[in-house]
Design a protein around this nucleic acid. Sequence first.
DNA 1: ACCATGACTCCAT
DNA 2: CATGGAGCCATGG
Length: 110
Amino acid sequence: MSFYDKVYYIVRQIPKGKVATYGQIAMILGSPRASRAVGYALHFNPMPGIIPCHRVVNRDGHLAPAFAFGGIDAQKNLLLSENVPVNEDDTVNLKQYRWDGVCDTSGVPE
DNA sequence: ACCATGACTCCAT
DNA sequence: CATGGAGCCATGG
């Protein structure tokens, strides 16, 4: 499994009604500073319908400025559909909605 | 191995 | 709070 594939695997596991940050995904993959590579991975192969990238936000909970599914508006709409409130600033309350699931690569296929 | 790229993050101004 | 510069990482040429 490539780094990117792991990213997709992790993102796919984000439970409905929760969001994860690039940094958190990177941390789960074992490289807390690879947030950049994570974002790049999602960008170059978003796999619509399979990877809920709308649940992936930056450290501020701010939605991606270049959401490929139809813009931030679409991403915001998707989050709202999952009971995840989005502020006027296009941000979510990480304090309450940050994904606190598994934090290791135990179940991540190589 | 080196350079360039990018949905990131941190620090300084 | 807005803007700019530098650091980090994985991938591809």
